[in-house]
Design a protein around this nucleic acid. Structure first.
Ligand code: ZN
Ligand code: ZN
Ligand code: ZN
Ligand code: ZN
Lengths: 156, 156
DNA sequence: ATGGGACCTCCAGTAACTGGAGGTTCAAGG
DNA sequence: CCTTGAACCTCCAGTTACTGGAGGTCCCAT
């Protein structure tokens, strides 16, 4: 049985995040010691790994919840899992397309900057007026609510 | 002078969002009618357009604040504007790279699904175990806090 | 027995909005 | 002039997926 800190080290998940997953019902309530501390078994470790891997692939928690439900009974058809994955793929592709066009716009802006004063900077000018843009509209990709964990050293 | 709803229509910004920008000091407090309603002039319209265009290009509000400060006095050097834009470009490129690798992983997963039960679905299996992945680590791109406005019909 | 690191709960904050409740104001029609 | 009703006002809570801190308890190795 692992304490929460060990589970954290094992899965690369911050301790408050684990408790958060428990709060929102993604992780079941673990056993407790007499002194009320959480103890986790192997199943929980796997479950958390699954969650984290899905998060790393950009799945929102709502999808992960559905995927966990599915993987909880192995006899069901995998159709909905595939649907979720395909949907996620479409999302990713949508975001890729938007970002590619943003990239283009930004490149153009920056290229045109001659390095003078603000008054004649093409960056500022382009930002002020979308008419300078090539794309007729920017569709900023939907968030995808990613976790960012800043460079963390391994718990060695 | 425009009422807030007209400004909203003019710039494609939701009314609560305009008030929010005012709250956080991105937009100055506008004049008011005797009955306490906001009235906006042309400068405000331009300022809001600038903000929105930047948002559409993925700039975070903190950067937009800096860009607005710059564009407020045109004699300064545009160097920092360019730095911000370049930084944003790097961000976008980072996110493009991550998404490309996510896309690859998702494609592989989906391709391998034979359509049976959950027990032998490769999608579920791949999600459960990162060892099936090609990339040795997924770096989920930082959020970039985009606004999503779901298909909204024009206030005609 | 004691020290200190790991643990506990609760709460607030992040980013950038979004929506609702409950109450006013504006402008047009009668 | 008066009445509607749409648009406006303020304040507050909720969204997503966490993250961090305060203040207090527990575990276990010495
Ligand atoms: Zn410039
Ligand atoms: Zn543009
Ligand atoms: Zn399958
Ligand atoms: Zn993986």
């Amino acid at each position: 049985m692992l304490a929460i800190g060990q589970l954290s080290a094992e899965t690369g998940t911050k301790v408050p995040t684990i408790r958060y997953y428990e709060d929102i019902g993604l992780l079941p309530q673990p056993e407790r010691t007499a002194g009320n501390q959480r103890r986790y078994g192997k199943r929980q470790v796997d479950r958390l790994r699954f969650i984290r891997h899905c998060r790393d692939l950009g799945f929102p928690l709502s999808d992960i919840r559905a995927l966990l439900d599915l993987s909880d009974d192995p006899d069901r058809s995998c159709a909905s899992a595939d649907t979720i994955a395909r949907h996620q793929l479409r999302e990713v592709e949508r975001r890729l397309a938007s970002l590619a066009s943003l990239r283009q716009e930004l490149c153009r802006m920056i290229d045109q900057c001659a390095g003078g004063t603000v008054a004649d900077c093409h960056v500022i000018e382009s930002l002020a007026d979308h008419a300078h843009c090539i794309a007729d509209r920017h569709m900023t990709p939907a968030p995808m609510e990613q976790h960012v964990d800043p460079p963390r050293r391994d718990p060695a």
